[in-house]
Simulated assay, not measured.
Amino acid sequence: MKVGDRVKLTKKTFLFQGIFIFTGATVEIKELNSDKALVIYNDKEGYPHDLEMALSDLAPL
């Protein structure tokens, strides 16, 4: 995985700041750290949200 890649979430559906983040949603990697990634999640209205996810919660498309 590298910055700019589109991946899917494998984490169970959860609530983040009043927005449901669904399992299997496609996100774009914005920034990578050793064990975490900052990803961009677009909600159903198309608004982007930055989420910090563990690399284990991401899988290739």
Rank of each mutant, 00 (worst) to 15 (best):
M1E: 08
M1F: 12
K2D: 10
V3T: 13
D5C: 01
D5Y: 05
R6V: 15
R6A: 04
V7E: 05
L9Q: 03
L9G: 05
T10N: 03
K11M: 04
K11C: 02
K12T: 13
T13S: 15
T13A: 08
T13K: 05
T13M: 02
F14R: 04
F16V: 01
F16C: 00
Q17M: 07
Q17I: 03
G18A: 05
I19Y: 12
I19P: 04
I19R: 08
I19V: 15
I19G: 00
I19N: 05
I19E: 12
F20G: 00
F20C: 00
F22M: 01
F22A: 02
F22D: 05
T23P: 01
T23G: 02
G24T: 06
G24R: 02
G24L: 05
A25D: 15
A25F: 06
A25W: 07
A25T: 10
A25R: 01
T26H: 09
T26N: 03
V27S: 01
V27R: 01
V27I: 11
I29T: 03
K30Y: 12
E31R: 12
E31G: 00
E31Q: 12
E31K: 13
L32N: 03
N33H: 14
N33M: 11
N33K: 14
S34L: 09
D35T: 14
D35L: 13
K36H: 14
A37E: 08
A37R: 03
A37N: 05
L38W: 10
L38A: 04
L38S: 09
L38D: 10
V39D: 01
V39G: 02
V39N: 00
V39S: 02
V39E: 01
I40L: 08
Y41W: 08
N42K: 14
N42Q: 09
N42W: 09
D43N: 15
D43S: 08
D43L: 09
D43R: 07
K44Y: 14
E45Q: 14
E45Y: 14
E45V: 05
G46L: 03
Y47H: 13
Y47M: 12
Y47P: 06
P48R: 06
P48E: 07
H49D: 05
H49S: 10
H49W: 15
L51G: 07
L51C: 08
E52N: 07
E52S: 06
E52G: 00
M53R: 10
A54E: 13
S56Y: 11
S56P: 07
S56I: 13
D57N: 15
D57V: 04
D57C: 11
L58M: 15
L58Y: 10
A59G: 06
A59I: 11
P60K: 01
P60C: 00
L61P: 15
